[in-house]
Write a protein that binds this DNA or RNA. Sequence first.
DNA 1: AAAAATACTTACTACTTAGTAAGTAATTTC
DNA 2: GAAATTACTTACTAAGTAGTAAGTATTTTT
Lengths: 190, 190
Amino acid sequence: MTPRYTDTKEEILRLGTELIQLYGYNAFSYADISKKLDMKNAAVHYHFPGKEDLFASIVQQYIDRYHELGKNLDRPGITAKQKIEAFISRYTALAEQNKICIIGSVCSDYNTLPHSVRAKMGELIDLVLSMVAKVLKEGKTNGEFHFEETPHTQSLLMMTNLAAGVQLSRITGQKDYTAICRSIIKQISN
Amino acid sequence: MTPRYTDTKEEILRLGTELIQLYGYNAFSYADISKKLDMKNAAVHYHFPGKEDLFASIVQQYIDRYHELGKNLDRPGITAKQKIEAFISRYTALAEQNKICIIGSVCSDYNTLPHSVRAKMGELIDLVLSMVAKVLKEGKTNGEFHFEETPHTQSLLMMTNLAAGVQLSRITGQKDYTAICRSIIKQISN
DNA sequence: AAAAATACTTACTACTTAGTAAGTAATTTC
DNA sequence: GAAATTACTTACTAAGTAGTAAGTATTTTT
């Protein structure tokens, strides 16, 4: 049969990611995806046999994109501050679309996830935390940043501010998210 | 008929809260509750006609308990630092039980919640943020604390650190949560 | 002692969930 | 041009979801 999309698999991943970011891990079903892509339930199962596979692929894509971001930022001429701002702007984009990040979305359901998926989530979180920690360390070394915690702890503080910030501001309003971002930068600035 | 428990309604609320904190809002069902309390599905519906009612009561109980905490802390002889530590210890208790706070748990599913419940969640969040902001302001005024942000923003930073901290540390380990708590105190200390 | 209220159980409904087996039309490979 | 592969659809299942109507045993009220 002729494929509906140039890359149906990619479309499913894109939509699945969006649904998780908008409504949470449990509110995303094969039916939701098939309806929106105008195909049958079984078609989604053709591309991703189980929900576990689909979710693993979504997280893997997220991981790949963070690696990509890392590569893009790893060139001369970009300051550590610009790199941090690149991370923050990811969350800002989410906030503007009423979305939250996959990490925050899945964390609350963590105890119900299949174990393979839990491991993938751990991988994603470790990656993000270590990438941010690396940039923070770099900025501290070259004098751009000033903070007293270890880079890892400072990374934890920043990412928890951001992840919970986009979540809270969906309820309390964008102003709170803006205040959090401003303060994050201020905290590490000289 | 003779009631099973001295207060079945209270038992349902207690168990419902626990299930949300452990597994998330969507992973808690009437069947889960009735099974654990050794009664039938319909018995839970007798006490709480709909899931919306049950959840609203759970959040209301949470709100009531924060008001209670507020009253308990509002006596002379308690320092602002001790008050902040009381808030933090609530989250520490959650972290030790592999649980997360209701706010963090429900935030990810916010877009799927019925509107009455969304309003209740907003109420809870505003309450917690304003209570913490009040204590922070008090501590700043009497010289216990030092911070440059407004009390509201500082409260946002603290609560996002805590809420996301208990969530993240379920995956990355308790050490990260401990580091976050230590830093929270440090940030506002002189 | 009768009536009413309480706290359920029994038995069901309508719907949604992930998942599957078998068939089919178009495309690609040989 | 036949065979195999791709990308689906049709049609289904088993389990779980919230929710309900009607019945029942016990306690409380009158």
